[in-house]
Amino acid sequence: MPTHKICLLGGTGFVGRHLSARLTATGHDIVILTRQRERNRDLLVLPTVRIVQGDVHDPQFLRAQFAGRDCVINLIGILNETGRDGRGFARAHAALPEKIVQACGAAGVTRLLHMSALHASAGAPSHYLRSKAQGEEAVRRAASADFHVTCFRPSVIFGPGDGFLNRFAALLRRVPGVFPLACPDSRFQPVYVEDVVSAFERSLDRYETFGKAYNLCGPKTYTLREIVAYVARRLDKRVCILGLNDALSYLQAAVFEFMPGKPFSLDNYHSLQIDSVCDGKFPEVFGIRPASLEQIAPDYLSPYS
């Protein structure tokens, strides 16, 4: 496999850290862009990684960092914004991809891998999904014979260090005996982070993936109630999961939106109106047999972790 000079945006996040480790293990030269270099110095233990501090929303900074790179990977995404009007989502998911493709063109980058979201569409009920669709459209529209784009649309991603199962684990440890759960019947098909990064890595030089978008899901479907119950069992936590009806789920989102850290928001509530499940199996082109929650989660969910 040829090695690449890659510029990675979002490399300090959950998926980005796993992807950085995978790419450096196979010899690729990685530049990770971040706003706060000192907070991510631990990534420098990876032998082919360099961290550059700067503003990824600055077109001149992007062009400078993309110079001499042959591939850009964009993983940047937010689950909530500071405000509530969608501008934060639009900036991160729609405006930034536009800047990325323009900077790629100016710097002569020929390959772009882009993280979208499952069921992103212009008619989706949430700012998150609509803005993700705009970003995906921007990068796919820029594709050409000399600029090869591949997009990935994962369901919720789990694995060591995730913000999904670990968030529920943290909440469950604090509740006394009853856990009120919004949208308990929403369905997910969680996908293992290492399967996601494998798809990214394997797509780098596979011409058959050029111009394509892939839905990435795990092998099993669960309701949100089933996922929370599974986490509780792994923690040996005896708790009554109180599923909230639609009206109470909306109310919880409206209240939690104003809490520190915004643990749940109205935009999250709207996203949960669409089941995060795939129509088919994991894309065969990558040759991956996706791992299930039960195979992986016990290694990092325990009463003592």
Rank of each mutant, 00 (worst) to 15 (best):
His18Val: 00
Val72His: 11
Thr110Ile: 06
Asp70Phe: 14
Asp70Thr: 11
Glu208Trp: 08
Ala124Trp: 04
Thr110Arg: 15
Cys7Thr: 12
Thr221Tyr: 04
Val45Ala: 14
Ala170Trp: 06
Leu96Phe: 12
Ala124Glu: 02
Ala170Arg: 15
Ile6Asp: 05
Val101Gly: 10
Leu112Gln: 05
Ala117His: 03
Ser20Lys: 04
Leu216Arg: 08
Ile241Gly: 14
Asp236Leu: 13
Asn80Gln: 14
Leu204Ser: 11
Asp279Leu: 15
His57Asn: 15
Ser198Val: 00
Gly287His: 02
Gly105Asn: 09
Asp279Val: 14
Arg187Gln: 12
Arg187Asp: 02
Thr209Asp: 06
Pro184Val: 08
Arg91Gly: 01
Ala169Gly: 04
Gly77Pro: 05
Pro290Gln: 06
Phe158Thr: 01
His93Thr: 01
Phe179Met: 09
Arg130Ile: 03
Thr150Gln: 08
Thr110Pro: 01
Arg140Ile: 00
Gln60Gly: 10
Pro303His: 11
Phe164Tyr: 15
Ile73Thr: 07
Phe200Gln: 05
Asp146Lys: 14
Ser271Cys: 11
Ser155Met: 02
Val175His: 04
Leu43Glu: 02
Arg140Trp: 01
Lys281Cys: 08
Asp279His: 14
Arg225Trp: 12
Glu284Thr: 12
Leu118Ser: 06
Leu33Ala: 15
Leu235Gly: 10
